[in-house]
Each structure stands twice: as structure tokens, then as C-alpha cells.
Design a protein around this nucleic acid. Structure first.
Lengths: 367, 367
DNA sequence: TTGTAAGCGTTATCAA
DNA sequence: TTGATAACGCTTACAA
């Protein structure tokens, strides 16, 4: 039913296009607009990019010509001359937690596109040369700025995108480079809240399922966990740490490790919702009850956390805001504002649902 | 600890940059490389873009100079002159199903970046002017091609991106325009398989939770459902259709509607995993057992489907391949190949898990 | 306020 | 195979 939009012939193999005289209906140039409006190209350019530096009447005439001719400025020419591309690179870490990052990207996209900037995606993926490619993109002047969602900044031969002279902002994780404004969640406070919540429910034997070793967030989150453990005076031997990496598989493995323990913890702190969900599935399949036998707190606040059984107590990260804030900072930098505070910390919030409950009574009736 | 990467001074406001003599360490130009290699700029250009049209020895000399000077060709200049940008626009529908689309995007990205193309994201989002923005991007010559993940092709004043003269490929949904090569899953076969699976288990009263009215996939999926119903000769009054839109909320609403029914279906066909998962949570919370009382089949095959309880029987879409195949087709078109078959259909696969089981015995012991 | 004209850095055409 | 040189389409001093 949809009317087929005219596209010329069917599949003619566009060959006889070499001739000069009006190739059907060539793309309008600024000169065409100038002619149609009876002004110079300079005026057209000004009418379009600096409306207040042109007479109202002229401006309207130009705009009309633009409309009639369906004129769209050529991006390459504009960029070459002006030195700006209006494109931002967003570097996404090796794919993990799509539900988490997609919302951060959403926040970035909203801000950038509202300001007229295009968003280039650069996945820091498995493929060889992927990083080189990103570096070339940046040094090729193709970009006005970059937002990195990963602690790892793309680099090649020691030449990182930080040296390209474009502003860079880090979101979700710090880069370790002082000059890069960074927007993160208060990781340490969050795990502190997670752990205190469990301890407050009477849990004394805890399991911490970590993120990747050395990971920016992981390091900070573990600090919060340890602080809570210390403040509650839990004995060292009642606290277990398992390594993980934020994804499902890690949760399954942690679950298996848990099941194999002689003296199982009753409170579990997970550093991502995916891990928590996979962990929960694994131990429940083995007959462990949540939250009766074990209480579990996730981290991230993805939507799914509210659709598993039992629903997951978790930390809700301001995902959209993380992205939007980072984008705003970058736009500020591009607009010539002086660098803002180096670190912007947004707050995560504990959302209590059904996966946590008072600790089971110690040594009584349990298997 | 990470060495702060030198970035020049602090914020000097780059003023005294007009002077000729080496501004610190200016970005190398093709002329610099030519000089260093003792050849002309034309030769440098050829050495870089058409290696076989230059003497091996010269090529090596040029490459060495490139390395030494850290030369990266200016993208804008290249694009202006060559008329190609090596950038592809990917149009993503109003954000829904991040876990689904992220994998499709992954497939696209792998192919594109391997071929040296950058990927611009265009979310078809709520914001006003968002679509206009995409249209401008395309008509600005900023792009060599586009992949649309949505049946809706961005347009403004009746000027759609299809008329910009760049190749466009549709993935996941058709556009209704014959000239656009399209890659989709065999929707109808998939719902046929979903429904037959339920019917084969003895279910005679079915509920179909639809996608958005008129949606490309929805229309095809419903056909498969109806075909299966017809072939089994189920009476019309035993088949219910509820409207939905692939997201959580729709599943919750469908669940509520289900609970309110006097004579409840025992088999449920959902057209997305999100909907299935939300539906399942809603009815289980009300005491309905899955799969003992109700069997449920999802659609998409997102990872989460294997982590809910019970695990979800579903259709696994070849998400990565959908994206990768679309990207390959686009790259072919960009390479001058003649248009391929207009429609490429990939196959979805029924994955049987725990949310489906034989139908409960009719009229016996039920509430 | 508007017009003139000089580039922006590369690739493609044409000779050599 | 290589080199000179003219575009590519726009923005921006500078002049009028």
C-alpha cells in the first residue's frame, strides 16, 4: 500500500550519467541558491549560519530559495573550510550489558542531536584493527570530540585519541588522565548501600561477586563493600570474594562456586544486574531459596531486574543522566567554555525489592 | 599513575596561531609527506589509495614518511574531493528492545568497520526535528549509504532519504519501497512454528499478543498464527488477540487482561520476549502456573529469555546475521555491484525450554 | 549590510 | 610511473 517513492527507473545501472547538461536534477549548490535569491554566495552562507548578520528581508529571500531548490549544504566542504565536522565519536566498551549502555547512549544521543551533532559509534570490539580504525577516524579530523564509555581510551603505537586535540569526556568510568572531564556514579557509596542493606537485615556471611580485575568501577565498588564489612566488624573468614566480569556467564559461574561452598554465605552483593540474575537462576535451580536462604542485591537497575523472580533489589544508576551529562559537558567544551570540574559524580539509589529479606536464623533447621 | 598525556598548554585560547613557523607540532599534511619522501603530493595520494599504481620502492618511501610524520589524511578534504565519506547511517527505531537491536547493530558494525566504514547512529526518537536532522545529514552528502532498522524511513516535507541517491538497505523490517533491498526473518514461519508447538502440546484455547498495529513484522507474524489456527481447525471463539507493542508494559497489560478473562486460554503466543517475560511475571504473581496452567512462547531469543523462571520457549532470531547480512549487501552496492535479490529471508528457530508443556486436561479440577 | 575572492587539503585529469 | 594543476563546495577576511 505504501506508495513506492519515485527513484528514477528501476535498476538501469546508471551509466549514461557522464554528460554535463543537468543530470536529471542535480543537487543544488550554494551558487544556485545565490542566483535564485539574487545575492552572493557569501550572503547565502551568512543567512544560513549567522542569521543576525544579514538583513531580515534578504534572509527570507534566501530561505525561500533554499526551500524551492531543496538545498542542503555540503557537509564535507563546510567541514573542510570551517574545520569542524559536527560529529562526535562515542566509544563503547567491548559489548557487555546492552540494556545498561543503551540507556546511557540514549542520553548522549538526545543531547548531541538536539545540538545538531551527529553521533558516530565506535565499538571497542574484538576485531583486529578496530582500535586503529577509531584512531584514524579521530586524527583524520572527522570528529569534533569524543565520549568514551570505557576506561580504555583507543590508542595505537602510543598515539591515543587524547592527543588529537579534540575534547574528550569520559562517562561511566575514569580514564586515569587528569585532563579528561569524567562523569561517573558514586560507585563506592552504592556498594556501601548494598552491603549495609544486607548487614542491616542481619546477614553476617557475605559473598561479593566482583567485576573485571582492575576495572575502574570494580575497584571503587569493592572499596564500598569493604568499608561496610569493616564498619560491621564481620570476621574475615565470613566474607568471600569471587571474580566476575558483569555478564551472565560470570553469574552462573559464581552460582556454581557458591553451591560448592561448605559454609554458604547468606548475603550476596553483585556488581551488575546480569550477574545477579544469572546467579539467582543458578542457585534457585539447585533448590536454594531467594530470599529465604539467600539475599541478593544487584547493581545497575536495568528494567529486567523487575521482571525476574523474585524481583531484584538493586542499585539504580542514573543511566540516561550519565550520558546526557557527559554530552552536555562535551558540548560546553566545544562551545569554548573552560573545562568544568574534572569529576562529576551522580548518585545511584538503592531500590529494595523481593530478593532481600532478613537473614535466616543461624544454625537451626538448615540442611 | 597513567602518564598525563601532553596536550599543549592549558587553555591559551589559541590566538597566536596565525604565524607560519611550526605551531608547536602542527598536524602533518600530504605536502609534508611528499616533501619528506621526495615525491609529489599526487604520488603520496596514489601510494595511499591505489598502491598498485605506484612503484614498490616509492610506495615504501612514502609509507615511511607517513609513519615518521604521523600523517593521517584529512577526512573532509578527501570526502570533498572524492565525493565519498566512508560513513554509513544506521537508523534505529524508537528505542525498544535494546537487547534485541544491540546484537543487530553489532553485526552491522563488524562488517562496516572491517570494510573501513564509520557508523553513524540515528535514533528515530521522540525529539522534534530529529528526523529532519537525519534527512539533512543524508542530503548533506555526509553519508555514503544507510541501513534502516525500522519500516519508517526518515523523511521531511515528502523528501525521504531514499531520494538522496545513496544506497539504502532495510534490515528487520521492510520499507514498502521496492528498490530497497531488505533483510528480514521469516516472521510468518516463526509464528507458525510457535503456534504449532502449542497446538501440538494439546492447547486449544490460544492467546495472541500482537505487536504494534500495522507494523511490518506484526502483520506477517499474525498471518502465521492464523494459518496455524486454521490448519488445526480451532473455533474462532477459542482464539483471542490482544494488542501490544513489543515492550514490557504491553506484556503487563496483556497479563492483566488475561487475568480478567472468564475462560482463560492455555496457550499464549507472544511476539517479543519482553512481552512474554512481563506477561509471565504478571500472571504468575496472580497464582497462575507456567507451564502447568498456561504455556507461553516468546519471540526474539534475547539472552534474558534463558534467565527467567521458568526459562522461556522462544523463537531465536539470527540477530547478528540480520545486521551483518544487511551491511554486506550495502557494501556490495557501494562497491558498484548491481542490486541483489530484493528480499533476503533468514530463518528463526524455535527453542523449546520450560515455559511450554502439554495442555492441562480440559474441564477438570480447574478453579 | 553585502560582494569579492582566497583558500581549506585532498584527489583526478592530463601531460611528461 | 610520476608531476603539475585544477577542481571539490563552502566560509570568511577584507573591501565596498
Amino acid at each position: 500500500m505504501t506508495a513506492a517513492t519515485g527513484q528514477g527507473g528501476g535498476g538501469e545501472g546508471r551509466k549514461s550519467r557522464r554528460s554535463r547538461p543537468r543530470p536529471e536534477r542535480a543537487k543544488a549548490l550554494i551558487a544556485d541558491v545565490a542566483r535564485a535569491a539574487g545575492v552572493s554566495t557569501a550572503t547565502v552562507s551568512r543567512a544560513l549560519t549567522a542569521p543576525d548578520r544579514v538583513l531580515e528581508a534578504t534572509r527570507l529571500r534566501v530561505l525561500e530559495a533554499v526551500r524551492v531548490l531543496d538545498y542542503t549544504p555540503n557537509a564535507a566542504a563546510r567541514q573542510l573550510r570551517a574545520g569542524r565536522s559536527r560529529a562526535i565519536l562515542v566509544v563503547v566498551p567491548k559489548r557487555r550489558n546492552p540494556p545498561f549502555f543503551s540507556e546511557v547512549l540514549h542520553g548522549i544521543d538526545m543531547e548531541l542531536s538536539a545540538a545538531g551533532y551527529a553521533m558516530l559509534m565506535g565499538n571497542l570490539d574484538s576485531v583486529d584493527g578496530k582500535e586503529d580504525y577509531l584512531v584514524d577516524l579521530v586524527f583524520g579530523g572527522h570528529l569534533d570530540g569524543a565520549i568514551v564509555l570505557s576506561a580504555a581510551v583507543p590508542a595505537r603505537d602510543g598515539r591515543s585519541i587524547l592527543q588529537a586535540g579534540i575534547p574528550v569526556v569520559a562517562v561511566c568510568a575514569g580514564t586515569g588522565v587528569a585532563e579528561v572531564p569524567t562523569v561517573v556514579v558514586d560507585d563506592t557509596e552504592c556498594t556501601l548501600a548494598q552491603t549495609r542493606h544486607l548487614i542491616g537485615l542481619g546477614h553476617r556471611r557475605l559473598l561479593y561477586i566482583a567485576g573485571p580485575k582492575g576495572n575502574y568501577n570494580e575497584v571503587r565498588r569493592y572499596r564500598g563493600f569493604e568499608a561496610a564489612v569493616r564498619e560491621a566488624g564481620l570476621p574475615r573468614e565470613d566474607v568471600v570474594r569471587l571474580e566476575g566480569d558483569y555478564v551472565f556467564r560470570a553469574g552462573v559461574e559464581a552460582g556454581q562456586a557458591f553451591l560448592a561452598m561448605a559454609r554458604r554465605p547468606t548475603g550476596v552483593v553483585a556488581t551488575s544486574d546480569e550477574v545477579a540474575i544469572a546467579f539467582m537462576k543458578t542457585i534457585r535451580a539447585a533448590g536454594v531459596r531467594v530470599p529465604q536462604d539467600v539475599s541478593l542485591v544487584g547493581f545497575d537497575g536495568i528494567e529486567f531486574a523487575d521482571f525476574v523472580e523474585p524481583t531484584l533489589t538493586t542499585i539504580r544508576q542514573p543511566r540516561f543522566d550519565l550520558g546526557a551529562t557527559g554530552a552536555r559537558i562535551l558540548l560546553g567544551l566545544l562551545g569554548g567554555e573552560s573545562p568544568p570540574q574534572p569529576l562529576t559524580v551522580l548518585h545511584g539509589e538503592l531500590v529494595v525489592r523481593d530478593s532481600t529479606a532478613p537473614a535466616p536464623l543461624p544454625r537451626r533447621g538448615g540442611s
